[in-house]
C-alpha cells in the first residue's frame, strides 16, 4: 500500500498546513544529522578529559610508587580489537589502573576496563570509574567494543575470586569464570592477549575477610588488609610493591568463524584452561626471578 509520490494527488492545502511532520524521505546516502554535543563523554561513559586528568594524577604513582616495568608490550596491537586478559589481585586491585595506564601512555590508544556491575551501582565511584574507561562486563558490551569498534578491552576472568583471596594464597590463580571471555573473543574474531602481573598481590594483601560486614554493606567481600595498620587513610593506599607486567603471546582463533550464535563448550573450556595455565606458568617464572617484593 505504499504510495508513490507521483501517484498522490494534490495535497489538501488546509490540512497540509496543519501537519507538522511528514514521512521522512528514504535516501540512500543520509546526510549526517546535526549532533550538538557539548561534552566529550562517549557512548561508554568515558571522557577523554577525565581520562587525561586521571592519567596525569596516576603517572607519578605508576612511575615512582609501583615503578611498573613491561615485558613484551610490542605484542599488543596498535590497531584492531583485542581482548586483554590478566590475573587479578589486591583488596583494592591496582593491576587494572596500572595495565590501562601503561598501555594508554605507551601505545596511545584507549583501553576499556570491563568490571563487575558493582561499580556502576556505587554512587560517585561508579561515575568516575565510567569516565575513566570502566565498562560493565556484559557480553554484549564486550562484543560491541571488540567487534564493531575494534577497541582494546581488559578483563579479569577471575573476577572478585581473584581480588578476595588472602595473602597465603597469593599468585594462585582462581577459576577463570565460565570461559565467557574466550567465547566473546571467538564471536568478535579478535585475539586474546594474556598478561601476567606481579606486584598487585603485595600492594594490598588481605589477612582475613569478614563476611558479615560485607553482607551488611552489600559488598562483594570485606577484607582486613595489612594496609589498615596505617589508619583509615592508609587503608586506601597500596604498598609500594614493584610491578612487573609480562605480555604473553596472543592467542588467535583462526579456525573459528566469528558471529556464530554458539560455540563448542568443550573448546571454550579447553582454551580458557590453557590461557589460565599460561598465565600461571608465567607468574611462577616471574616469581622465580624476583629477588625482592619491593625492588623487583
Amino acid at each position: 500500500m505504499a504510495h508513490e509520490e507521483q501517484e498522490r494527488g494534490p495535497l489538501p492545502t488546509q490540512t497540509a498546513a496543519l501537519v507538522p511532520v511528514h514521512l521522512p524521505p528514504v535516501a540512500d546516502e543520509p546526510e549526517p544529522l546535526d549532533d550538538p554535543r557539548t561534552g566529550d563523554v562517549d557512548e561508554w561513559g568515558r571522557s577523554e578529559q577525565v581520562r587525561a586528568f586521571v592519567c596525569k594524577a596516576y603517572d607519578p604513582v605508576y612511575r615512582h610508587w609501583f615503578r611498573a616495568e613491561w615485558d613484551g608490550l610490542e605484542k599488543i596491537p596498535t590497531e584492531g580489537g583485542a581482548l586483554l586478559v590478566s590475573n587479578h589481585a589486591g583488596a583494592i586491585p591496582s593491576d587494572a589502573p596500572t595495565i590501562m595506564h601503561g598501555i594508554e601512555t605507551k601505545l596511545g590508544r584507549p583501553v576499556y576496563g570491563l568490571a563487575d556491575h558493582f561499580f556502576k551501582n556505587t554512587p560517585v565511584v561508579g561515575t568516575l570509574w565510567a569516565r575513566a574507561g570502566g565498562v560493565v562486563a556484559h557480553p554484549d558490551n564486550a562484543y560491541r567494543l571488540l567487534r564493531e569498534q575494534q577497541q582494546l578491552a581488559l578483563v579479569f576472568p577471575e573476577g572478585t575470586k581473584g581480588t578476595s583471596k588472602t595473602y597465603n594464597e597469593r599468585y594462585r590463580l582462581r577459576r577463570f569464570g565460565r570461559g565467557g571471555f574466550v567465547e566473546i573473543a571467538m564471536r568478535a574474531g579478535v585475539p586474546i592477549i594474556p598478561i601476567a602481573v606481579v606486584g598487585a598481590e603485595e600492594s594490598m594483601p588481605i589477612l582475613f575477610k569478614v563476611p558479615s560486614v560485607a553482607k551488611v554493606f552489600g559488598l562483594p567481600y570485606f577484607p582486613v588488609t595489612a594496609n589498615m595498620a596505617f589508619g583509615p587513610l592508609g587503608a586506601l593506599i597500596p604498598f609500594p610493591a614493584k610491578f612487573k607486567l609480562r605480555v604473553l603471546d596472543p592467542i588467535t582463533f583462526d579456525d573459528i568463524e566469528p558471529d556464530q550464535p554458539r560455540y563448542s563448550r568443550s573448546r571454550i573450556m579447553d582454551e580458557s584452561e590453557a590461557i589460565r595455565q599460561q598465565i600461571q606458568e608465567a607468574l611462577f617464572d616471574m616469581l622465580r626471578q624476583r629477588r625482592s617484593v619491593w625492588m623487583g
Binding site: 500500500m1 504510495h3 498522490r8 494527488g9 495535497l11 489538501p12 490540512t15 497540509a16 496543519l18 501537519v19 507538522p20 511532520v21 511528514h22
Partner: peptide, 12 residues
Amino acid sequence: GRLAQALEADPG
C-alpha cells in the same frame, strides 16, 4: 492526535 493530523494529509 498528531498521528491523525498526519494521516489526514495522506490521500491514500
